Amino acid sequence: MEQRIDSNIWPERAVGKDPAYVPGLMVPPAGTAETDPEQAETEERGPEGGAPSDALPEDVPDEPTASEEDAATDAPSEGDAAKEGPVFEATDRRGAITADSEGVRFRLDDQEADFWWDEIGAVEIKTPRFGRRFTVTVHVSERRWFDAEVEADTRNRLKEWTAELDAVLDAYFEES
């Protein structure tokens, strides 16, 4: 009888069993409209089968008052302050790679994966000698990495994206 010596245990949920499984992508919590059709129907009908839940009461004004507009334009929000530094974004028809003060974000169609700066161990940039594929690989641990690719419209755009991403990495990424 053979026994396995290594402690390499494969996760139960893997691509071989679930083709929709992609490591690093978050699944919506159970009971939300995205995963539960009955919940979606309830949200459309409203709490007691009446008007939809997003319907506004008639006594609520639709437009903000002048004082609310002045307050909104005078005071910068926290999101604006966080976005003051360099921001990188590379997109094509299906995907996007974004890096800002929060971390690196990959998007492919309707799926997103977020990686915060404190969990990232290394970031690799790959540009082919021939072709226009821009690849960014995020290493989160010694044995786990995730990559995303976007296609540039010109070869010069690859050089621009590389320089922009280097500026963001220099500003926010701290090697430990």
Rank of each mutant, 00 (worst) to 15 (best):
V150Y: 03
Y172S: 11
R13E: 14
E38Y: 10
A71D: 13
D54L: 10
W116D: 09
H139D: 07
G95N: 07
D80N: 00
L25Y: 14
A152L: 09
P28D: 14
E102L: 12
A113V: 06
A163V: 12
A75K: 04
D147T: 00
A148Y: 03
A66G: 04
V87R: 07
P11G: 13
T162Y: 04
W145C: 03
D166F: 01
G103P: 10
A148H: 11
A99T: 08
V140N: 04
E84W: 00
D18T: 04
D59L: 04
E89R: 15
G24N: 03
E2N: 13
A30E: 14
P29N: 09
T135F: 01
A55V: 14
L158D: 08
E44P: 02
G131I: 01
D70A: 08
T65E: 14
I9M: 07
A55T: 15
L56W: 12
R144Y: 09
E63H: 10
K159C: 03
H139I: 08
E41F: 08
D6P: 03
F106Y: 12
E164M: 06
E12H: 11
P64D: 07
I9D: 08
D74G: 00
L56V: 13
R105W: 04
G103L: 05
E69K: 00
G16K: 11
F173L: 10
S141T: 11
A113W: 05
T42R: 15
L169A: 06
P57Q: 13
D18G: 01
T65M: 02
L169E: 08
V150K: 08
W116G: 06
Y21N: 05
P128D: 07
R143G: 04
T162V: 11
E58L: 14
P23S: 07
H139K: 13
L158R: 11
P11E: 14
T127G: 02
A55P: 02
E89H: 04
E48V: 05
R143V: 12
G79H: 00
E164Y: 03
E175A: 09
P11H: 12
A51L: 10
R93N: 09
A71G: 09
D80C: 00
S67C: 03
P64Y: 05
V104C: 11
R129E: 03
R157S: 12
D110W: 06
P76N: 01
V22H: 12
G121R: 13
D118N: 12
D18P: 01
R45D: 10
T127K: 13
D166A: 07
R155G: 06
D166M: 02
E119N: 09
D6S: 15
E124C: 01
P86C: 05
E175S: 10
R45W: 10
E12G: 11
S7G: 15
S67T: 13
D153T: 15
V27Q: 10
P76T: 00
A96M: 13
E38Q: 15
S53C: 12
R93P: 00
D100K: 02
W117N: 05
M26V: 14
E174P: 01
V104P: 07
I125G: 04
V138N: 06
F130T: 15
T42W: 14
L108H: 09
A122R: 13
F115I: 08
D70K: 03
A90L: 04
E43A: 13
E151L: 07
S101V: 02
Q3A: 13
L165N: 07
I125K: 06
V104L: 15
A122D: 13
